[in-house]
Design a protein around this nucleic acid. Structure first.
Length: 564
RNA sequence: GUGCCAGUAGCUCAGCUGGAUAGAGCAACGGACUUCUAAUCCGUUGGUCGGGUGUUCGAAUCAUCUCUGGCACGCCA
């Protein structure tokens, strides 16, 4: 058992179920089909440590007012062998459970025992899950959307790992299709412009206008000169793409690495075309009757899949669409590679694609639910209270690299993981660099550094933590101490919830609460200089706090400094 | 026009599988450093949960209508 909360909830459910059974046997209550018994932590501490509303839920079946049901039930609760001291009835019919402090001390034991593995839970049971995120077009640098998707995706992957899933982090390289075509045309235009003059060569309307295209061409010409002028346009574009694309991909890799993200798999879209997987996938859909042909193109049959409209899979020029490749890609994930679950992180502007992709799994016998798409809202950067679009240094659109350079990796990752994915995110650049109490990143890091400082000071005096079973934790009686232990005990529960909701941001908020609770403790209680037994107990508490803060920060890939 | 997401304190956001008196941070105001890091803490102020109706013992949470903002509706990805 590595989640005390779960253990307590199970105890409460068990004693409650048994009490219902015994009431039924004694004829005190009619036979009742129990719902899932909801156990929660009441908002008010005065309402006990945990509570359940089960008496209210069954009031109809019991044919009694909820309070009356509770009054019959509570005396039948057999609390022996549990953490529960007593149960009381309150309000409209809540049953409030008051626990012995032992559960808190057990939580500290657990933390000491598990150390850096404290917080791990076995929700996933080794299920194979693929988390695909960023997957940016390799036609230019990473932007703010990629930055948020990157932080989110990496943290979702990390949370799922802690929750017992077998996680693969994957980047889908869009190195084929239309945008590569445009990339090639843009490079070619810049190349020709270099030799013939800008006004002599038209630039494609939907081309990539970025400076980086010109830079690629300039570098290419420095190495290879004007040899491409005599080639065919096809050869010219291919050569330029073959030159520039790997450079862009390498830059993306490096930007993400400096952002703290390492992938297990870089999956090439082109490889799906080259291997024939795309054609094969379309053919399979055609033969299974999931396509229609009209206007010389092959369409996915929307009606048959419950979609609003048909979607083109193969254009009338014979070139498959992104959609076709994407279906082949997900078929590969589930069938070729056997993932039990695939999570994709997409910007909210792609939400229209969600229903289509899920529906497109059906012909392959893949349940829709196996594909989960996490949509995240876009990011607005603020500087001096105004929307910032340009990098301070370069004057160009702000890239992930610029952002990290300006505010630091820790702050970027922290802020992108502070809000739920569904909410719009305003990123305040001024706040992120501020080294003050306004900045939550430092607030958490400071708590960690403070703890390390206590441990260091005491170690210098020859005082080190004793094994926890040789410490009298019952000496921790102050309310600040209790609050802190409670907070630390929640961590496995937080990981579980973050994994279930795919919402790692709650861990960022959680670690802020841990820091806050610790700071309150710090101001109320001393460790150093207290009587030895109390000092030892507090030393354990402080060390447990260090472990939890460090574990969370590591999970969200933020430094836990020992000094500040 | 249709669909998706959002609307909670001055600001940024939690809470949303219905639960007890709606929370946090920042901002504002007032306090706390002889003592392990004051990048900290303690206290005060601050709300028609966008609005209406409904469902029920109970609604920020569910349903429905409506207003506002963002986005999507392509042989783009």
């Amino acid at each position: 058992m590595n989640n005390i909360f779960e253990k307590i909830r199970e105890q409460i459910r068990t004693v409650t179920r048994e009490a219902f059974a015994s009431c039924e046997q004694n004829g005190l209550l009619p036979a009742i089909e129990l719902p899932d018994i909801v156990v929660e932590v009441p908002r008010e501490r005065g309402f006990g440590d945990f509570s359940t509303n089960v008496a209210m839920q069954v009031s109809k079946q019991a044919k009694l007012p909820p309070r009356k049901t509770a009054e019959i039930l509570v005396p039948e609760l057999n609390l022996s062998g549990t953490y529960i001291d007593r149960a009381e009835i309150a309000g409209p019919g809540f049953i409030n459970f008051y626990l012995s402090k032992n559960w808190l001390f057990d939580a500290l034991h657990l933390i000491q025992e598990r150390q850096e593995r404290y917080g791990e839970v076995d929700l996933g049971k080794g299920k194979k899950v693929n988390v695909e995120f960023v997957s940016a077009n390799p036609t230019g640098p990473l932007h703010m959307g990629n930055a948020r998707g990157g932080a989110l995706g990496d943290c979702i992957a990390a949370v799922l790992e802690k929750a017992g899933y077998d996680v693969t982090r994957e980047f889908y390289i869009n190195d084929a299709g239309n945008q590569i075509e445009r990339f090639g045309l843009s490079l070619e235009a810049r190349y020709l412009q270099h030799f013939m003059g800008e006004d002599q060569v038209p630039f494609p309307e939907d081309g990539y206008h970025g400076e980086d295209i010109i830079e690629h061409v300039k570098n290419y010409i420095e190495i290879h000169g004007d040899a491409l002028l005599s080639k065919t346009p096809d050869e010219r574009r291919q050569t330029l793409v073959d030159y520039a694309l790997p450079i862009n991909i390498q830059r993306i890799r490096e930007a993400l690495a400096s952002y703290g993200i390492e992938y297990d798999v870089w999956f090439s879209e082109k490889s799906l075309h080259d291997s024939g997987a795309v054609a094969e996938t379309v053919e399979f859909l055609r033969q299974s009757g999931y396509t229609v042909e009209k206007d010389g193109a092959i369409w996915l049959n929307g009606e048959k899949l419950g979609l609003e409209k048909d979607e083109v899979l193969v254009r009338n020029n014979g070139v498959p669409t992104y959609m076709a490749a994407d279906i082949a890609y997900h078929r590969n994930k589930f069938i070729t590679r056997g993932f039990d679950w695939a999570i994709n992180l997409w910007g909210a502007d792609h939400h229209g694609h969600v229903a289509r992709m899920k529906a497109a799994m059906v012909p392959f016998g893949i349940e829709k639910d196996k594909l989960e798409v996490v949509l995240f809202q876009l990011v607005r950067l603020y500087r001096n209270g105004e929307i910032a679009r340009m990098s301070k240094r370069t004057g160009k659109a702000i890239s992930l690299g610029d952002l990290i350079e300006e505010v630091g990796r820790d702050a970027v990752r922290f802020f992108f993981n502070l809000k739920t994915s569904g909410s719009h995110l305003d990123f305040d650049l001024d706040l992120a660099v501020k080294q003050s109490n306004e900045n939550p990143v430092f607030y958490v890091q400071y708590a960690h550094a403070r703890i390390c400082s206590i441990l260091r000071k005491l170690a210098e005096e020859g005082v080190t933590p004793r094994p926890v079973d040789k410490v009298n934790l019952a000496l921790l009686q102050e309310k600040e101490e209790e609050e802190l232990i409670r907070k630390l005990a929640e961590y496995p529960e937080e990981v579980t919830l973050a994994a279930k909701t795919l919402e790692p941001s709650r861990l960022t908020r959680y670690v802020l609460e841990v820091a806050s609770t610790f700071h309150s403790f710090y101001n109320a209680c001393r460790v150093r200089g207290e009587e030895e037994e109390l000092m030892m107990a507090r030393l354990i508490l402080v060390d447990c706090t260090r472990i939890v803060i460090r574990n969370v920060l590591e999970l969200i890939s933020i430094q836990a400094p020992e000094k500040m």
